[in-house]
Design a protein around this nucleic acid. Structure first.
Lengths: 172, 172
DNA sequence: CCACTGTGGGTGACGTGTCAACCAATGGGG
DNA sequence: CCCCATTGGTTGACACGTCACCCACAGTGG
């Protein structure tokens, strides 16, 4: 659906593109749909059953993971692999909804701490169990333990291929 | 990063959640990052090297795939698995940018056709080769052919588990 | 002490996605 | 034939992401 030669153009630029063969085509389509369905379901569920979004959830997870529930913004950005701009916007919204709070950083005048509020802690504790349950139901339960092992290797391979990529990776 | 018992609460509601064990935890985190990195790269590349977005691309692919480059909106929605609202908004933007056009449907008074313009065809033909190339580089090249087979089975399994889900699936 | 570069972080504008509500045409049943 | 539920599709408000730009402070070199 995404990458076949429907258009029979021999590209004027460089080499012929290596179009996907039918099996590859099938995997790519299936993989995309799986990804899409999976986090649509996860997002909808957490949205519907609690007062936080999936994005809120992942921020709060990091905050509950560290002692004192207090992290530097940039560390958060690295942990989540989010652009700093996205994080900044999102944190602002979370502050507005009372899930987190900010504190100045004495060691570095430009730095800033984020800390989880009691309300934030309550929200994630309420959301987590049902979320894990759904991750199990949709993701782990359908797979054999062998497939879990295989998928781990596969994900690492693909991830590895992207880390050393000369590609577009603007400042985080 | 997303699903462990950082918070040692025995939930007051029903049964204990089945938290993820360390291997599962690792797979889940790796999988999420892989997904995220992968389409961030794909989106950035197509955005940077052509005048269309990844979403535009997938719409245009469907349109080049059918004879006469002309599809009913709902069929498009089913093909892409997009909510009709999202599709409607997106189509409006694409019309504004001259990538597609609309036509009335004589057989069904409320229906509407979408058709690809020459500019749209030129855009996707320009974008496709580099896009496929990147899909190969990031996704297929790192995998052995055995892993391709495994991943196909895995994706189908997970997708299958979601199809028959009693979950939240509002009108498309 | 002063430039100068780099880094931590925020802002505004704009494109995109979602939800809920809406509207018009359709296709049955009575 | 008319009523009415369904279907195809749009709209508006709002949450979210991204890009480009900005600003304050930090850490150098001279």
């Amino acid at each position: 659906m995404t990458t076949s030669p429907h258009t029979q153009t021999s590209p004027a630029d460089g080499a012929e593109p290596r179009w996907l063969n039918p099996e590859e085509q099938h995997l790519w389509r299936t993989f995309l749909r799986m990804r899409q369905e999976l986090d649509a379901q996860l997002a909808r569920q957490i949205q519907a059953e609690s007062d936080i979004s999936l994005a809120d959830f992942s921020v709060l997870v990091v905050l509950t993971d560290v002692p004192e529930g207090r992290v530097r913004v940039l560390e958060l950005a690295r942990g989540l692999q989010w652009e700093k701009s996205r994080l900044s916007h999102h944190l602002a919204r979370m502050v507005k909804r009372g899930l987190i709070d900010r504190a100045e950083c004495s060691e570095d005048g430009r730095g800033s701490f984020v800390l989880i509020t009691d309300a934030g802690r309550r929200s994630i504790e309420a959301a987590a169990p049902r979320h894990v349950e759904l991750v199990r139901t949709l993701f782990f339960d359908p797979l054999t333990s062998e497939q879990v092992t295989q998928l781990t290797a596969i994900s690492e391979r693909i991830l590895g291929a992207m880390q050393g990529c000369p590609s577009l990776d603007p400042e985080n």
